[in-house]
């Protein structure tokens, strides 16, 4: 038997399959924003403080958070971490799509219970960074990007749905 693939330490990989270091620090609510940024703020703290802050921040969005509340401060946000506390909680997919529909162009990072078989859906919903538990994160991204060449619906990615290709719409 092979070892459980998800037992590997999570690694950060981009939608281009590049393994990157994580330069961000997730702040606890009581931590002060010093000079050692960049920082990821909790959702409620971001709502409270972003208005008065300068510079660029990341925000951690949990499944129940309404990401639209961040829109007034979106210019100050360059990273949104969407948390998947469990594999089967799919709210984060809507979070990412809403962000892309609203024109957010920064990084959307999936964190938490992120496994190989979710990457396809995440890529289509607009995620572009993944803290994934896999022995071969780059290979997992490559597989997710090549597994399908036909798509039945428009989403946040550049893939055109079958109906668009059929009618050149």
């Amino acid at each position: 038997m092979s070892p459980l693939n998800s037992s590997h330490t999570p690694q950060l990989v981009t939608s281009e399959g590049e393994i990157i270091p994580d330069g961000w620090t997730l702040l606890d609510d009581e931590d002060t924003t010093g000079v050692d940024g960049p920082y990821v703020l909790g959702f409620d703290r971001a709502l409270r403080e972003l208005d008065g802050l300068n510079g660029h921040y990341g925000v951690r969005v949990n499944p129940a958070d309404d990401v639209r509340l961040l829109l007034p401060f979106i210019e100050k946000i360059t990273l949104i971490e969407v948390a998947f506390p469990g594999y089967r909680d799919g709210r984060g997919y809507s979070t990412a799509r809403i962000l892309r529909e609203e024109g957010y162009t920064g990084a959307i990072r999936a964190v938490g219970d992120v496994l190989r078989d979710q990457l396809f859906h995440m890529l289509r919903c607009g995620f572009n960074e993944f803290l994934v538990k896999d022995s071969d994160p780059a290979g997992a991204i490559a597989a997710a990007k090549t597994r399908f060449t036909t798509f039945y619906q428009g989403a946040a990615d550049a893939n055109r749905p079958a109906w668009a290709l059929r009618h050149n719409a």
Binding site: D89, G90, Y93, S94, R97, H121, Y152, W163
Partner: peptide
């Protein structure tokens, strides 16, 4: 049927 086939946003519904 086509629209709902592997809809990326709605594969992990409640």
């Amino acid at each position: 049927r086509q629209w709902s086939s592997i809809h990326p946003e709605f594969t992990f519904l409640p």
